[in-house]
């Protein structure tokens, strides 16, 4: 079985390799400060103890108040997986350092996160809208993106009384 590294283990490893890089720790993951991200990731990849050579998944998440980029890192030999995250609170221009210099496999996944969430990956060699066309209005995977015609609000309208969102004001990103 693959061992899922806990937040403490991840944070300890990150702190050991790059002191002062951990922003905060959660039970299952560890947040890295953006300014130390690339350095930490390189160190984690090259560290024989962690051996997180493989970027399994890179994914951006919009939490209304912040954007997170989730990195699932994997070690083949040790058979362990760890979840690192990096967050930014700037909604207008969310910037996260790119990890393409560390993992080539991040290239297209970062392109995708940029295309759908509008997270700008600093240092990405070719950041462009990979699925949508240039000039597409808005970032569709953001929670405040109103995709439906007729001014309908995203949400489970067909399930009465279960609308869980709508508290924050919905902006048209047009």
């Amino acid at each position: 079985m693959t061992r899922e590294l806990t937040g403490e283990e991840l944070a300890a490893a990150a702190e050991r390799l790059v002191p002062g890089s951990v922003a905060r720790t959660e039970p299952h993951c560890c947040y890295i400060k953006p300014e130390h991200l690339r350095e930490t990731m390189t160190a984690l990849r090259d560290d024989p103890e962690m051996d997180l050579v493989y970027l399994a998944n890179l994914c951006g998440v919009d939490y209304w108040d912040r954007f997170e980029v989730v990195y699932h890192l994997h070690s083949f030999v040790k058979n362990q997986i760890g979840t690192y995250k990096c967050e930014t609170h700037d909604r207008e221009k969310p910037v996260i350092p790119s990890v393409v210099p560390v993992w080539h496999g991040a290239w297209m996944q970062e392109d995708e996160a940029y295309d759908l969430l509008g997270i700008v990956f600093e240092g990405h060699p070719n950041l462009y809208r990979i699925f949508l066309w240039d000039g597409y209005p808005g970032w569709p995977l953001r929670k405040d993106f109103l995709s439906m015609p007729g001014g309908l609000q995203p949400g489970l309208n067909e399930f009465a009384g279960v609308s869980r969102r709508g508290e924050p004001p919905v902006r048209m990103t047009e």
């Binding site: 998944n57 994914c59 998440v61 290239w107 297209m108 489970l156 279960v162």
Partner: peptide, 22 residues
Amino acid sequence: VSDEGPSPFRFHIRPPSFINLS
């Protein structure tokens, strides 16, 4: 990602053939 709602808060697929194209 779940926020205790009836639908996923975030649903992300890690598509193998997309990333294999890297």
